[in-house]
Design a binder for these strands. Structure first.
Lengths: 224, 224
DNA sequence: ACATGTGAAGCGCTTCACAGCG
DNA sequence: CGCTGTGAAGCGCTTCACATGT
């Protein structure tokens, strides 16, 4: 582990109690800052708020939980703020991750721009299909599930990503837990019962669509 | 998870008194109910809460916003509750959607189980790459962007999904807006400026990973 | 007896408004 | 003067506790 950035966090970071909702917005802010490029130097809370789709007060409040990054009367230095958010999110560290399930979604994540860019290093691809095992994707060997343990041990991976079919997700979570993984991101459309003290986060790609559906539906109903 | 700037987009659409956070949990409840299968008949708020990873009180409160679906002293009829949630979410309607960008992610969504199951019908695949246009995926013709307008008009699609590279996302959103789409789900890792009065919801696959990183990072710091 | 449905209390996030500082 | 940083007020969600109904 690289401790230098951690020291930096605690030097100028309040960081005792960052609200969950704030943590969840930080990636959005980061993404907006990245979209501003390197030509400009400063950004105001107002402009950043417009980009992120929130209010300026929320931006300032959220950032105040992390530290004092702005300059009164001026705004925020884009490069500096970008770095600080990355440090707080732990993105200046390298996070080795393994992906289980090399279907379309697994492949999409394996070379997803947002991963490398944020310090997530895919160190292992695994699949249960013997036809896939031994082949390569994007220059990476696809391994059998038997090799989960050794690979995770060698690479020091702490995060596992499940992109298997729903039917295989629970067993995969168990296998990851057995192999020593402590945090799992589950993309399979099913709820997994946590094996042991593993932290499981679910990302359901159809959830957003269902939420969209609710509001479209509701709007249509209102019109009548 | 997302939990992003939904408040801004839909704040004034919620005329009924269903909290946004409740709407975002409904797909999770639905998924849990689906995982219970058809053999059992009833489920308690306590059991459903355990499956969904929330408290029983939250389940009951959330459901109370939608109606009175349970039976006191007994619990909820699984099949009935499942249907009611689907109705509230508008999933008993058919939602034609188009997908722009037939890379790994586009293909993953095109035959994603969670879509068909919830009434989302993929009626068009589009890609800017001339090499892909004219070929088929999963029995569907991949069309050129020129055909966006006609296809959307014929099919009555109201939802567009962007799975292009980040660099093409803004132009794609504009094209979808021009073609009459009013709701966009953006999977490209970039923030899109809404063209006109289009509602844009962003799904960043790396956001959850970044949130995970924050908590892992901080846990590591706390241990010292 | 038992589990839901629900006012009311509690709590955390959002927004306001202005103090603080370049 | 301009924009950030921040107590305090406001608001919405969560949790509690028990009335309600079968």
């Amino acid at each position: 582990m690289d401790f230098a950035p951690i020291d930096r966090v605690y030097r100028d970071c309040v960081n005792e109690n960052v609200p969950n909702v704030t943590v969840q917005r930080l990636p959005v802010y980061l993404s907006c800052l990245e979209s501003l490029g390197t030509e400009r130097e400063r950004v105001s809370s107002e402009e950043l708020a417009t980009l992120a789709g929130v209010t300026p007060a929320k931006i300032r409040k959220d950032l105040s939980y992390l530290g004092t990054f702005g300059v009164r009367g001026v705004g925020y230095d884009i490069e500096h703020l970008r770095f600080q958010i990355r440090v707080v999110l732990g993105l200046e560290e390298e996070w080795p991750v393994v992906i289980v399930g090399v279907g379309n979604l697994g492949r999409a994540l394996a070379n997803y721009g947002g991963f490398q860019e944020h310090g997530f290093d895919v160190v292992g691809l695994f699949d249960a299909d013997p036809a896939k095992v031994g082949t390569e994707y994007d220059g990476m060997l696809i391994r059998s599930l038997d090799e989960l343990g050794p690979t995770i041990h060698e690479s020091g991976a702490t995060i596992g990503i499940i992109t298997t079919p729903a039917s295989a997700a629970q067993a995969t979570a168990q296998a990851l837990a057995d192999a020593g993984i402590k945090s799992i991101l589950n993309f399979a459309p099913v709820v997994i019962k946590p094996p042991g003290d593993v932290d499981i986060r679910r990302v359901d790609l159809s959830t957003e669509l269902q939420v969209l559906s609710f509001y479209l539906h509701r709007r249509g109903v209102d019109v009548e």
